[in-house]
């Protein structure tokens, strides 16, 4: 009976009418991620101190800061690995990240790329992407799994995005370091994340690979929202985007790279004047 009553609310859009991706995600205000007044301390050391950060949907945001500024801890909080002592973290207007477990957060559409690339070296690039595909992952569904046309399209699309179309049938172990990083980003993309957290993707890359990675990340912005943590200033400048400087667990400055670089406080922190 309750079901029938529910259906009588004609002004309501029913759940099954909602688009399939992240049904509860509400970004009607244009912001995808809200971190407000977040503080975390480890044994009295304040790793994050009243951090406020807002990320727009489709943005590519670079986070820089000296060692110990709290960049990785911030990522840990977003992905649910670390619980803050106080503050709030919302994904869209309706998803409270602090109430969710790590897999739930991943399911809701937040993907994270770790510093060290871990791909399945003894399988092809294609199989690596296939395995990372979003969808049912039970034993019998995987045993009987067949590719649908849209799944193949998706894999092809991602192969194009990460520029590994030629290497489709190559074993992932045969890829160069940079290509492995791209493959790992591709594996993340296969899960259709709304928000991508990318941790130092260009460490150990050649200059050409860095340029390629920059292009890749820029092209992802728009369709996805990207938060990039990076040490390499040249790389961040080449992306020419919104930059947030973290220092001692809170935001020191925000703006374009040029604005940030001319900021007195930033210069002081970085040059120790």
């Amino acid at each position: 009976m309750r079901l029938i009553e529910e259906f009588q609310h004609r002004e309501k859009v029913f759940d099954f009418m909602m688009p399939n991706t992240s049904p509860a995600l509400d970004v009607s205000k244009g912001y995808l991620l809200y971190l407000e007044d977040i503080s975390v301390s480890f044994d009295g050391f304040k790793a994050i101190n009243n951090l406020n950060l807002y990320i727009k949907e489709g943005e590519l945001r670079c986070i820089i800061g000296p060692n110990g500024a709290g960049k990785t801890t911030m990522m840990d909080i977003i992905t649910g690995k670390t619980r803050p002592d106080s503050g709030s973290a919302w994904f869209g207007q309706k998803i409270n990240l602090l109430e969710m477990s790590e897999p739930e957060i991943a399911q809701a559409g937040i993907g994270r790329k770790f510093q060290k690339p871990t791909v399945f070296e003894h399988q092809t690039v294609f199989a690596n992407l296939e395995l990372s595909m979003a969808g049912a992952k039970g034993v019998f569904t995987t045993l009987m799994a067949r590719f649908s046309a849209s799944q193949l399209d998706h894999i092809d699309h991602v192969l194009n995005q990460i520029g590994l179309k030629q290497q489709r049938n190559l074993l992932a172990g045969a890829l160069s370091h940079g290509q492995k990083q791209w493959l790992e980003i591709g594996m993340l993309l296969m899960q259709n994340p709304k928000l991508l957290l990318v941790d130092e993707p260009v460490a150990g890359m050649t200059h050409q690979e860095m340029d390629r990675t920059g292009e890749l990340l820029s092209s992802l912005a728009g369709e996805h929202t990207v938060i990039l943590v990076e040490h390499d200033m040249d790389f961040v400048r080449s992306l020419a985007n919104q930059v947030t400087v973290l220092h001692q667990g809170s935001v020191l400055a925000e703006g374009t790279m040029d604005q940030v670089q001319s900021d007195k406080k930033v210069v002081q922190v970085y040059l120790g004047e």
Partner: peptide, 14 residues
């Protein structure tokens, strides 16, 4: 040769 087999090899390696 099924996807399950590739998952198994993925488990073997990582």
């Amino acid at each position: 040769t099924s996807r399950l087999g590739r998952v198994a090899m993925a488990i073997r390696d990582a």
